[in-house]
């Protein structure tokens, strides 16, 4: 379970790990080039910036959130299996939990799982539910692809940022 009980503001107003201006510079940089993704490491903090097809107003905030997600994921205790797969299979996309909660593979205990290993999934297809305080969070696939690995067992607690699935994207 998560140890931090500090008050969390609604919007990401945490002290930035990387100067916000640095991120802006990077964003401008990437905007002018053909590069679609950029990852840098500075003082133990990794920032990945990805160019989206349609620019959004909340783009900057998303990046801030992404920074916090990366940090939290790297500080969480990870299973050896998870670490190994991260090292060797970079081409796979990892679906992570957006909340602290309980992981469910089906909509109810007597139903079939939403997805199994080997299933081909479409962007927007529901992969699982993570529940926190009776808030049932449907997690969708963000891409077309194939389920390579299910990393958490049904009805198990998951941390924020914990890896749930590995997907082989359709290229």
């Amino acid at each position: 379970m998560k140890e931090s009980t500090e008050p969390k503001p609604l919007k990401s107003a945490k002290k930035p790990w990387v100067d916000i201006d640095d991120i802006k510079v990077l964003m401008d940089l990437i905007k002018e080039t053909e590069v679609s993704e950029l990852e840098i490491e500075k003082g133990g903090v990794r920032v990945r910036i990805k160019k989206s097809a349609t620019p959004t107003v909340s783009g900057l905030r998303k990046i801030q959130d992404k920074v916090s997600a990366t940090l939290s994921a790297s500080s969480a205790v990870q299973s050896p299996a998870h670490q190994a797969s991260e090292a060797g299979e970079d081409k796979y996309y990892t679906v992570s939990s957006p909340i602290v909660g309980t992981f469910y593979r089906a909509s109810s205990p007597d139903k079939e799982p939403y997805v199994n290993v080997g299933d081909v999934v479409k962007k927007g297809q529901i992969l699982c539910i993570v529940e926190a305080m009776k808030l049932m969070n449907e997690i969708e696939s963000e891409m077309d692809g194939k389920i390579v690995e299910v990393l958490v067992q049904d009805s198990q607690p998951v941390e924020y940022g914990e890896a749930l699935f590995k997907i082989d994207p359709v290229s």
Binding site: S58, K62, D65, K66, A69, S96, P98, M133, K134, L135, M136, N137, E138, I139, E140, E142
Partner: peptide
């Protein structure tokens, strides 16, 4: 906790919240 509503220890209301989200949004 977390969101049943009780009157004299008896349940009078239930709440079920469903969410569709990405990692950050």
């Amino acid at each position: 906790w977390p969101n049943d509503i009780l009157i004299d220890q008896k349940k009078v209301s239930g709440i079920l919240t469903e969410m569709n989200a990405e990692e950050e949004r």
